Amino acid sequence: MTFNLELQGRRALITGGTKGIGEAVVARLREEGAEILTTARSRPGNLAPDVLFVAADITTAEGCATVVEAVRDQLGGVDIIVHVVGGSSAPAGGFAVLDDNEWQRALDLNLFPAVRLDRALVPGMLAQGTGVIVHITSIQRQLPLPEATMAYAAAKAALSNYSKGLSKEISPKGVRVVRVSPGWVETEAAAGLVNEIAVKTGTDYEGARKTLMKSLGGIPLGRPAKPVEVADLVAFLVSPRAASITGTEYVIDGGTVPTI
């Protein structure tokens, strides 16, 4: 279903667009008529044939350079950038198990791709006098979970801070920068984690789901967000209907963060 967000023909780069939130954002912007280029390490078989794709590891400077070249060659420039790629694979055990490699991995995945791609692509947006950048952060940037994702939370906090600084620099020149901060989103990967918890604790999916929500301090809405709900928010924010919105962060967490 489209909402006539006036995205027809807009050129959009979406990182990490082959699963989870990224896949939902690709589908949503595609529905609204945007021309999409997305990235991952390899092209999945279920990607729509009209979605442009570049295989690249954007945790590296070389991978980001490959994406920048694809934007220029396949899109001829860009009007919308949505930085979705991110995550954590750090082991449980708190701060003591997070060695230098884990910290570097968190920064390479959750901060540097946005910094590098923005640095290369924003000048073109400034030259055309228009553009929108969305950085997908996380509620963990203000509500860190120390058991396993402290480095991830710190990297997302850095991304949020960088995003705010960038917005102050380039918004006066016509390029908007917005942050979207999800809480727990029930992606396929998240569902897999719930199933693992269910097996380990001898409960069913719903019981494990409630346990995970409780570990976050509870979700007042009573459920995690759906990828499509995050994608709907992103679609609005990159549209001309949000033309006066820049430099701010939109939390979509079902009420998880307990403070203002």
Rank of each mutant, 00 (worst) to 15 (best):
L5Y: 04
L5F: 05
G9K: 04
T15G: 13
T15K: 08
G16W: 01
I21L: 13
I21G: 02
E23F: 10
A24R: 10
R28V: 00
L29Q: 04
E32H: 05
G33W: 01
G33N: 03
I36R: 05
T38V: 01
T38P: 01
T38C: 02
S42C: 01
R43F: 00
G45R: 05
G45F: 01
N46K: 03
N46F: 02
P49N: 07
P49Y: 00
V51D: 01
V54W: 00
A56N: 03
D57K: 00
T59H: 10
T60N: 12
E62R: 12
E69D: 15
D73M: 01
G77S: 09
V82Y: 00
V84N: 15
G86I: 02
G86K: 02
G86A: 02
G87A: 04
S88F: 04
A90D: 14
G93F: 07
F95I: 15
A96Y: 11
D100T: 13
N101P: 00
W103G: 10
N110D: 13
N110Q: 07
F112Q: 08
P113V: 00
R119C: 06
R119Y: 14
A120P: 09
P123R: 09
P123Y: 13
G124R: 06
A127W: 10
A127T: 14
T130Q: 15
I133A: 09
V134P: 06
V134R: 07
H135D: 14
T137I: 14
T137P: 07
R141H: 15
P144L: 14
P146S: 14
E147H: 12
T149N: 12
A151L: 12
A153P: 04
A154N: 01
A154M: 13
A155W: 10
A158S: 15
L159H: 07
N161G: 14
Y162A: 06
K164H: 12
E169L: 13
S171Q: 03
K173W: 08
G174Q: 13
V178T: 12
S181L: 03
S181P: 01
S181F: 02
E186N: 13
E186S: 10
E186G: 00
T187C: 04
A189F: 03
A190I: 05
G192V: 09
L193V: 15
N195K: 15
E196T: 14
I197D: 07
A198H: 12
G202C: 07
A208W: 08
T211W: 14
T211P: 09
M213E: 14
S215F: 04
L216K: 12
G218Y: 09
I219N: 08
I219A: 12
I219H: 08
L221I: 15
G222W: 09
R223S: 11
R223D: 06
A231F: 03
A231W: 04
D232S: 11
D232A: 12
P240N: 09
G247A: 06
T248G: 11
E249Y: 01
Y250E: 02
V251P: 02
I252S: 03
G254T: 13
G254D: 15
V257K: 02
T259R: 10
I260P: 05
